[in-house]
């Protein structure tokens, strides 16, 4: 027994010495690593935007992990923006540093971090690759395989798609963060001041229910995650409800915002988020499709393929079905919630 303790102690001493040495080396190398990384990023920014003199650091209000830089020249005039877009590619996370001008056109970019298949995906670090992106705006970011004009890397479509989609996501966050959101002055909000995220949600609600003057937030009695808003006009009379609904579509989560009247018929809907197949499922955010839902009650929400009245998008029945069914389920849920509140109130 004594021998085992002795062995354990010897091993413990070795581990302690090793940990001590490592802690020391770590304390010496950690600042070097951090400084080098910061320096590298700064150099890349200067390389992409040589005429910029100042890079002003900003953190996105909605996504605090997203940091971007506002580039200004020596006369303090706005030149553009610089940020890092990242997304998982084929076998690694690809990080791309992007420089854009003030009209959101790509000036230059550089893949700064990737570990894709050698000889295929790694070609995204070649000089030729960024050239394919220069001068493009948000809407022109689409790979040739998806009907766009950006030439994919041969044998590395997934890598190309990941870079494009990371750029689109990042530009969207950037645009959202820079956009001024204006809400009518007579709009009454319970909580003030609103942060950007809440402001955008309010703006969306106003878009589907423009007559509203106040939105009262309610949480369902049965399920506190289910949130809906009662819309009031200037006389504080209820004119309807707005509610968010989401469901998995064909290849992405579709998020909707629906405005309902007092009888719970749909007044108008808006797609908040989707990433369905381009030209097929993605049609769901077009006005002509969304109009098909206006005036419908929960019972009337059924896709034509299932014997209902909602006409499907050609080639995207799954998307249509997802939207229709999630609207129906959400409205039904809201109905039972309102009933529960009414009976509860009368007691």
């Amino acid at each position: 027994m004594k021998y085992i303790i002795q062995l354990g102690l010897i091993l413990l001493i070795f581990c302690a010495v090793a940990s001590g040495v490592l802690a020391f080396v770590n304390s010496k190398t950690q600042p070097v690593i951090a400084a080098r990384k910061a320096l590298e990023e700064e150099q890349t920014r200067k390389e992409l935007m040589p005429e910029a003199k100042v890079f002003e650091e900003k953190v996105s209000a909605e996504d605090s992990t997203f940091i971007y830089y506002i580039a200004k020249d020596d006369k303090d005039a706005l030149l553009g923006y610089c940020f890092i877009a990242a997304k998982r590619g084929y076998s690694s996370v690809i990080r791309t540093m992007v420089a854009m001008d003030d009209k959101y056109t790509i000036i230059n970019m550089k893949v700064i971090d990737q570990n894709e298949t050698p000889g295929l995906g790694t070609l995204c670090q070649d000089k030729a690759f960024p050239e394919r992106f220069k001068g493009r705006g948000f809407d022109e970011l689409k790979a040739d395989k998806d009907g766009g004009t950006i030439q994919s890397i041969t044998g590395a479509t997934i890598t190309t798609r990941a870079v494009i989609s990371s750029l689109k996501d990042a530009i969207q966050i950037l645009k959202d963060d820079l956009a001024e959101i204006e809400v009518p002055a007579d709009m009454q909000t319970e909580v003030k001041p609103l942060d950007k995220k809440a402001l955008r949600a309010l703006k969306n609600r106003l878009e589907v229910l423009p007559e509203a003057k106040t939105f009262v937030e309610k949480k369902a009695l049965a399920d506190s995650n289910f949130v809906y808003y009662i819309a009031m006009d200037s006389l504080n009379k209820s004119i309807g409800y707005t509610v968010e609904a989401s469901k998995q579509g064909y290849c992405s989560e579709i998020k909707l915002l629906a405005a309902l009247d007092n009888e719970l018929n749909i007044r108008q809907i808006k797609v908040l988020n989707q990433d369905e197949t381009p030209a097929l499922g993605a049609e769901c955010q077009e006005g002509y499709f969304l109009k098909r839902f206006n005036g419908k009650s929960a019972n009337a929400l059924k896709v034509d393929k299932d014997g209902g009245m909602i006409k499907s998008i050609a080639g995207a029945t799954i998307t249509t079905r997802a939207i229709t069914n999630c609207l129906r389920d959400t409205i039904t849920k809201l109905k039972s919630e309102l009933q529960a509140r009414n009976t509860g109130g009368s007691k």
Binding site: I10, L11, F14, C15, A18, V21, L22, V25, N26, T29, Q30, V32, I33, R36, K37, E40
Partner: peptide, 23 residues
């Protein structure tokens, strides 16, 4: 186990030094 501790310690040192000076 002692050999492994010694080796692992040196490997970690190499790992950190390389991260710092040859990223």
């Amino acid at each position: 186990p002692i050999y492994i501790v010694v080796i692992a310690a040196f490997v970690s040192i190499v790992d950190m030094v390389m991260a710092a000076y040859t990223p």
